[in-house]
Design a protein around this nucleic acid. Structure first.
Lengths: 370, 370
DNA sequence: CTGTTAGCGCATTCAT
DNA sequence: ATGAATGCGCTAACAG
């Protein structure tokens, strides 16, 4: 029923091995033979059997990209850039010997073509582990983990162990927007691109302090995640440096990275402290929710309350007023992670690079009204 | 090096066949034997070899979800919902005979567990075809195509042919937010969930007409795509029904579904017709860009110009003013597509269902100023 | 440069 | 309920 490599070989009057060789292009084959084979492939409409190929070669062309929330552009942008870099440019990085022959329509196999796929964990530790297992099972060529990590020790240990085994099996592991694994696990990572969440958070709050703000509300992300903690630490470092005392966690509320958290959290903050003049949100989406709550409360931005976000997602500049935030070069980081996963770029020294997070001061922040 | 099924068999003192049977759970095995095998699996930290398994079984647990732009929440929401439905609920739909035994941590294989992966085509026909081939190569269990389709006849034919072969090989093909394939290809589709883009577009413009608008600018999506065409047709149908004559394509500009298109397009429309009172955008993202351009032009929304979008993405309700748009039940549609792909839900009669698109009238639209 | 020979690891018959 | 044997389709030595 389904046409196999042997069928192609028969039609082209060569051995199966030869067909395999022209398909994989990693071995010298006479031009005339190649032509015949390619024609047979076309005639028969042959498509390589991936599982068989992977089984024999003990490796597959699958590359997994794990994201916490695919509906969040934060992840979509990173994943899209990585995927483009991985499977978007056939033939890239193939300057070696042998004739390349641009892959054509329906080509059964094009050079080092990889299938970059994104897996949505929904932020659930179980799903993260499950996808990792599934990718391990598929003998994925590489795995890219994006975004903040859970800090639960048991889960960290489980992930580290899993990644160790995955790396051990030859799969490259790259972290993007996630700090390097704590402890001894760091050497299983091919490369880690960590965002400077702490620094960004600090600069953001410094900006507000410089504007004259003293009474802050903080809309933190979900507890137990590196991103949440680092951004909050940056915020508090800035407060401490300015000699602003905090009342414990009274003006910090946690919630998912969702519009709703910002809305509800802002109402709660206002209840606890009607006199606050600035709200710092865990990310732009949360900040938007905060803005909505503020407006519904009859408060003007930034006249009555300043609002700041994080990430600088595309919609932030179009918010009204334009949102002050911290820019993260998501697309660049994703693309770099993709190249790293494909081994088309040198890992940074020590395997870890910290990506700058720059303040974008816009009109949602202003000096507090007096 | 890597532990195989045979290793597990040896340790559990059973035959490889037995191990395979307990792992796949689709065959009676004595409880005690099962226990021993499971323990061996755990002890050895065994993970099934996916390629080998797929090769022998002639099918894989991979499900592909194709999207045009992963950074666009429109696709992210659909894909996320589909993925959750497909791989997010282990054991779902398994009420059959045999003991289920909830899949546990690192389980080497859990029931009908599928690996749902999303593939980002970037809207490129080549990439679409390429991903389809790669999924075909992997013997994917199902493929879900989301979002509008290109209308170029050659590409439509190529995709149809490819899908026919994919379906023929036993892969279920589901369309989500995409009209059924034209021509005879429709029977290769397991199910198609089509958005009522035309109806939504019509109702949206009817709303504006009812408010008293007569001079419209239309920011269309990229040419040659079904979504673009249908929404535009709906718009024009409403205009025609209201007896509003159009000046050809003078007040329609095309562009990608991006904020930038909305911004640039609006400037262009304003140049062509400074007196327009309403701008209808291809989607919410474009509408946001339009709002920005309008404001930069010193025009107020909706006092000077009304603006409407499409999709009702999460940020639209938080826009200022809140965006009038057409709601598409993206998450519901994605989830349904996921169930359809898993054969956990009956296909609609005729294989095609049209999903309603409801008007969400908010504050970005109002009667034109007099 | 090309053909021959062996498996890769697992799911299935078919026996028992 | 379990074991033994066979082959899925391909790649990778090894010859020549």
């Amino acid at each position: 029923m389904t046409v196999t490599l042997a069928d192609v070989a028969a039609r082209a009057r060569v051995s199966p091995a030869t067909v395999s060789r022209v398909l994989n292009g990693n071995y010298p084959v006479a031009a005339s033979t190649r032509e015949r084979v390619l024609r047979a492939v076309d005639d028969l409409d042959y498509v390589l059997n991936g599982p068989a190929s992977s089984l024999a070669a003990a490796t597959s062309d699958l590359v997994g990209i794990l994201v916490n929330d695919i509906a969040d552009p934060f992840f979509g942008i990173m994943a899209g850039a990585a995927q483009t870099e991985i499977s978007g440019r056939p033939g890239a990085g193939h300057g070696g010997p042998g004739q390349s022959g641009a892959p054509h329509r329906g080509s059964p196999r094009a050079g080092g073509e990889k299938l970059a796929v994104v897996c949505n964990t929904g932020g659930s530790p179980d799903h993260e582990l499950r996808y990792l297992t599934l990718l391990q099972r598929q003998r994925a060529a590489a795995v890219v983990l994006t975004g903040g990590a859970l800090e639960d020790p048991a889960h960290v240990a489980a992930v580290s162990a899993k990644l160790a085994r995955i790396a051990d099996a030859g799969t490259r592991v790259v972290l993007c927007g996630r700090p390097p694994l704590p402890g001894p696990g760091s050497d299983v990572i091919h490369a880690a691109l960590a965002f400077d969440n702490r620094g960004g958070g600090r600069r953001l709050t410094e900006h507000l302090v410089a504007l004259g703000h003293r009474r802050f509300g903080y809309l933190a992300g979900p507890a137990g995640r590196t991103t949440t903690r680092h951004r909050l630490e940056g915020h508090r470092a800035a407060l401490a440096a300015a000699g602003i005392e905090e009342d414990g966690d009274r003006l910090t509320v946690h919630g998912p990275y969702a519009r709703r958290s910002g809305y509800d959290g802002t109402r709660e903050l206002l209840r606890r402290e009607p006199g606050l003049t600035a709200i710092v949100a865990a990310n732009d989406t949360v900040a938007l929710g905060a803005c909505a709550a503020l407006r519904d409360h009859g408060l003007r931005i930034p006249d009555d309350v300043s609002v700041a976000g994080f990430d600088d997602l595309p919609f932030s500049v179009d918010a009204v007023p334009a949102l002050t935030t911290v820019r993260l070069p998501l697309a660049e980081a994703g693309a770099r992670a993709g190249r790293l996963a494909m081994d088309r770029e040198e890992p940074p020294p020590g395997g870890v690079a910290t990506i700058a997070a720059d303040l974008m001061a816009r009109s949602s922040t202003a000096p507090p009204r007096r």
